[in-house]
């Protein structure tokens, strides 16, 4: 499919018209409090509301412990919020949905399965046709740059390669929304930049909607159509920054003035306690 098919969300007529039903996922008034082991109450999220348009790439940035993973788990239906609601494609979220693919902080591969069988896990669990999806899984492995690795086992791969497998697995059942929780946080800086470039390409080619969590300001600006900035615990939305930089973005862009302006804006929104990089 041509890359130009996917317009940045803010250029789309439906979004400009502000029509609610054109939104892919909405979260309204999310609050989450945990009760920790010593019975003290930990507020993790406070009044978080968020709307993501189809095809949009939203990055969520905040200091560690501010509730990013909590937010992602709520969006993915893995955690019921203490209060607040989430709607996915117009329907209230009460549990996990097959319209969501999750890339966790760790690759979470099954070590006894080959790369291909790991990618096909959702297909097996959702009882989809293996023959059809086998071809798709191989295509996706090509897309994430792992052509020829389908027969390998996870312990034969590097950290970056494992996370690519995890990405292919999250995409295999063709979910509308991709949730990613600091997927490249454990990678070295160079691998991480390479992965960011590839993720941008994959996103443009697949037309998915992505919510991407990070604690890196530059990663947030580089990838996002919009950057949601969260405050320290309990996590609130401190600011939302629309990044009007063209696509595809290349790594040189990170040295540009425009990029620096966005990064500074986000750093200010994070406040003195949110200094990360």
């Amino acid at each position: 499919m041509p890359a130009s098919r996917v317009l940045p969300y803010y250029e789309r007529p439906a979004i400009r018209g502000g029509q609610e039903d054109a939104l892919l996922i909405t979260a309204a008034g999310l609050n989450q409090t945990y009760v920790s082991q010593d019975r003290s109450v930990v507020p993790a999220l406070a009044d978080v509301s968020l709307a993501v348009a189809p095809g949009e790439f939203v990055t969520i940035v905040g200091p560690s412990g501010c509730g990013k993973t909590t937010l992602l788990r709520i969006l993915g239906g893995l955690l019921r919020p203490t209060s607040g609601t989430v709607h996915l494609l117009g329907r209230a979220v009460t549990g996990p949905s097959r319209n969501v693919g999750i890339v966790f902080q760790d690759p979470v591969l099954l070590p006894w399965r080959t790369v291909l069988d790991n990618v096909l896990l959702p297909v097996q669990v959702l009882r989809l046709d293996r023959q059809t999806y086998r071809a798709r899984a191989l295509d996706l492995l090509g897309l994430v740059g792992l052509k020829g690795f389908e027969g390998k086992y996870p312990h034969e791969l590097s950290g970056g390669m494992r996370q690519r497998v995890s990405l292919a697995r999250a995409l295999v059942h063709d979910p509308a929304l991709l949730l990613m929780d600091e997927p490249f946080g454990a990678l070295d800086a160079m691998t991480r930049e390479a992965m960011n470039l590839e993720l941008q390409r994959i996103w443009r080619e697949s037309g998915k909607t992505v919510a991407f969590i990070t604690h890196s300001i530059s990663e947030a600006v580089f990838l996002g159509d919009r950057v949601v900035v969260m405050s320290p615990r309990p996590g609130r939305i401190a600011d939302v920054v629309t990044v009007e930089l063209g696509r595809p973005r290349d790594l040189d862009l990170m040295a540009s003035d425009a990029f620096g302006v966005y990064a500074r804006k986000i750093r200010q929104a994070l406040g003195p306690r949110g200094m990360l990089e």
Binding site: G76, G77, G95
Partner: peptide, 21 residues
């Protein structure tokens, strides 16, 4: 826990979680 989370995110049945993980 992450492996169980993965299975839960796919709405796996109890038997599937047992068999696959």
């Amino acid at each position: 826990a992450p492996k169980l989370d993965l299975m839960r995110s796919l709405s796996a049945t109890r038997w599937q979680t047992f068999r696959f993980v």
